[in-house]
Amino acid sequence: MCGIVGLYLKNKALYPQLGELFKPMLIEMTSRGPDSAGVAIYRDAVPEGELKYSLAHDETTHDWAALATALAKDLSAKARITQCDTHALLITDAPEHKVQAWLRDNATGVRLVGSGKSVEIYKETGLPEEVYARFDLASAAGKHMIGHTRMATESAVTTAGSHPFATGADLCLVHNGSLSNHNRLREELIRKGVSFGSENDSEVAAAYLTWKLRNGVSLKQALEDALDDLDGFFTFCVGTSEGFAVVRDPIACKHAVLAETDDWVAMATEYRAIASLPGSDKARIWEPKPATVYSWGDEGMNIEELARGAA
């Protein structure tokens, strides 16, 4: 099962309502995935020279302020941090590779969930409605969001095994389906230096894309390569700084529907997740074709170029 949803707002007047519009979409997919839920929201891009890091810890009492202070001191950088339940948002001007290494070496129990100029990733176990409330997302403003409701089949119900999975700067993946060659692919990727935080099959898909993008392959090409290299069932929704992309396996095993009006573009596992959006009754609705990459984003968004963001 699992449910995935994506919403991209074309009409700027709706930006302040992004979180409110997205909430019923995610909650409607509870019956497809009641174990865990997660979202990636794109908002409040940081100034040039800084990056945002979405961090998570099992304990809500974790001392995030101490982490930011120590990181700033050790890396001689500016750092500010905001806690949100089990997650925290770190913004710093330290070089990305140094931040990653510092977190790995110094921040025991802290997971780096995602990073980029504008992406923020929040995910937890529990009912989608509860997860959404924990991270105060209903009041969130922004341009686009993707989300996932999980019914675990391939690995344990844990926060680390929840979606979205980061695949590079401002890039992340949500997956509906199951992969059958994830063990072998994970081993291959580990040999190439990619690290993993869970036993989840979808994380392998995300790691595969990360590795492709790191090697200079465009997002479109990486998704097309995934059609050859990933064995199993999948509908993927990939969030980018500009918008989102959707691709299904070659036999379109898992459900997906796309809808578009003058105000927004939405994707969901089932249309009922889209029905709550304003004007949905008049939306153009269709099923994405198998093995075809669809993408939406800002005017001029070129999915071929998106690898630049992930480099």
Partner: peptide, 13 residues
């Protein structure tokens, strides 16, 4: 039954 049903909108499965 030989009835007509008009569904005004998009339907699920």
């Amino acid at each position: 039954k030989p009835m007509t049903v008009d569904i005004q909108g998009h339907v699920g499965f």
